[in-house]
């Protein structure tokens, strides 16, 4: 089999198909070890008001390994306007690069954390016009995914299940429809709970995965980061290898003829 191509997002090339988050770790050293173990080359970060009381506190960026691409998100935004403002601030925070990658996330409500499609689309149109390379977090609605792609997004990132739920891929059929039509990379963002969930998504042919909670909140985050790395690679390889079709009945892998005590072979 030929060597796999890289994941390309808006002209940037990544050998790893796993993108990981930097939230919810119990401490920075654990986060750093997990980031390294995951093999990821891109990590998400959030933009928040500076805690003015906590001066001199260790900076997150200090603990992100050198050379990792930062992917600022708009997590916590519930309107297109807030998401756009957050991206503009993120652009100012990024060191270099007038065309930053951003993870656009506009949520509907704090309980379900499901994306608000209307606001996401509105924000995507503005951000693309302003020169951002937009990776939108979206529901698994194939129509919305197509609209986001038409709006000029560099990828679409449908959920597998709600953020932090760990429920895995709840609607593989919707994801397959998105995959069939998308001309930009499809990345499953949210819902992956354990390695098998990651492998299932990759086996369906998605271009990559974005995982945070499943690694950060595992009992051993570093071991889980390794498991996710392997599952992402295994799932990708299985996709490229081409799985056998599913059949209802058995199909023997050993020859049925020549069994002892059976009928003699006719010549």
């Amino acid at each position: 089999m030929a060597q796999d191509e890289s994941l390309v997002l808006a002209g940037r090339s990544f050998r790893s198909r796993l993108v990981v988050g930097t939230g919810r770790y119990r401490d920075f050293p654990t986060m750093q070890a997990a980031l390294v173990a995951s093999g990821a080359e891109m990590v998400t970060v959030a933009v928040r008001r500076l805690d003015l009381a906590a001066k001199g506190e260790a900076s997150l960026l200090h603990w992100i390994p050198q050379g990792m691409q930062l992917l600022p998100n708009t997590a916590g935004c519930f309107t297109a306007d807030d998401a756009v403002r957050t991206c503009r601030l993120a652009r100012e925070l990024q060191i270099g690069g007038e065309r930053p990658l951003v993870k656009l996330e506009v949520l509907s409500d704090p309980k379900t954390l499901l994306p608000d499609g209307e606001e996401t689309l509105a924000a995507a149109r503005i951000l693309v016009k302003e020169g951002f390379d937009v990776l939108p977090y979206t529901s698994d609605d194939p129509v919305l995914a197509r609209k986001l792609e038409d709006a000029g997004c560099a990828a679409v990132m449908p959920l597998g299940a709600p953020i932090g739920s760990g429920l895995g891929l709840r609607n593989p059929y919707a994801l397959q429809m998105i995959l069939e039509h998308a001309k930009v990379p499809v990345i499953v963002d949210a819902g992956v709970g354990t390695a098998s969930d990651a492998a299932i998504c990759m086996e369906l042919g998605v271009s990559g995965l974005l995982i945070n909670t499943a690694i950060a909140c595992a009992t051993d985050p570093v071991a889980m980061a390794t498991a996710m790395k392997l599952a992402t690679e295994a799932g990708r390889l299985a996709f490229r290898a081409g799985r056998i079709p599913r059949k209802l009945y058995g199909n023997a892998s050993s020859p049925l003829g020549g069994v002892i005590g059976g009928e003699p072979a006719r010549s």
């Binding site: 988050g21 919810r24 933009v47 600022p72 997590a75």
Partner: peptide
Amino acid sequence: LEVVSFVGGG
């Protein structure tokens, strides 16, 4: 005024 920085997030 808003003064922001990067923090951990998904």
